[in-house]
Amino acid sequence: MSNRNMILAKLRAVQPAPRPLPDVPLYDEKLPPALETFKKSLALLGGTWVDAPANGDIEAFVRSRFPEAQVFCSAVPEVAGARRVRDVADPHDLYDVDVGIVRPSFAVAETGSIWLSEAEYLVNSLGYLSQHLVALLDPADIVGNLHHAYHRREFFEANYSVLMSGPSATADIEGVLIRGAQGIRSLTVIPVPRVPIVG
């Protein structure tokens, strides 16, 4: 018997009997209102909440927020953009994207985070090569805390996922905060209800 197998055999011999995991509460008894909490948490981490336009023209609204931008790449049906992410074959092709537009599966009020996976990005580099990221979030998709978030089915279905809280940021030892250091320079969240799927 090799040393490795001998060690593993000894560990198996003293392994405790399996027992059920404890029930972990969701800590939702005194949760504050999800929408207001999300807005505050998002702002604290450098993100921006912007109410949707009254006329419902999301594309024109997004373009007006970034007047200098040239390449808008969209992963959502509400915004056509100059480039559809579904047409991108190579993730490197998104190197020149000024504004990426996505729809998070859900958001977490406690942390001001939006949840994105390969299902929402379609091409993961959209969330990191874009200069600015715009998220169309249905307010009904905001959960109160991370305990609720970790119970969502998306965590078990995704191959890749991220909870994004504001733009990329770094700070040196003197406390100088730089936003957009390694990724997106800004994160804008616009409340846009999901369009019901018919059929």
Rank of each mutant, 00 (worst) to 15 (best):
C73E: 02
S113M: 07
F38P: 07
R4A: 13
L21D: 15
P18C: 00
S161C: 12
P20N: 14
P167G: 08
S41F: 05
I7D: 15
V97S: 09
R65A: 12
K10C: 04
P18I: 00
Q131N: 11
A43P: 05
N124A: 03
A135M: 04
R86I: 02
P25L: 10
Y95M: 07
S2F: 00
E59M: 04
Y27W: 09
R4I: 11
W49L: 05
R179Q: 13
V88G: 11
C73A: 15
R65T: 03
E36G: 08
R83W: 07
F106P: 04
A80P: 00
L129M: 12
P77N: 04
G175W: 07
V143F: 09
G127R: 03
L163H: 12
M6V: 03
R179T: 14
P67R: 03
A52T: 06
A17E: 15
T37K: 07
I7A: 15
I190Y: 09
E68R: 02
R103H: 08
G166N: 08
F106W: 08
D87H: 04
V97H: 10
D90N: 13
F38C: 09
S165Q: 12
D172T: 00
S125G: 05
R194T: 12
V24F: 11
R19G: 15
M164F: 07
R103K: 10
A181I: 02
G144E: 02
V97I: 13
E154Y: 10
L11P: 03
E174A: 08
F106D: 10
V24P: 03
E120W: 04
D57M: 03
F155D: 12
Q182S: 11
N5T: 11
N5H: 09
E110N: 08
L42K: 03
N5D: 15
A75E: 14
G100T: 08
G183L: 05
A69P: 10
S161G: 14
H92G: 03
F61C: 07
G47C: 08
D90Y: 02
V79I: 12
M164G: 09
T188V: 13
I190A: 09
R12S: 10
R83G: 00
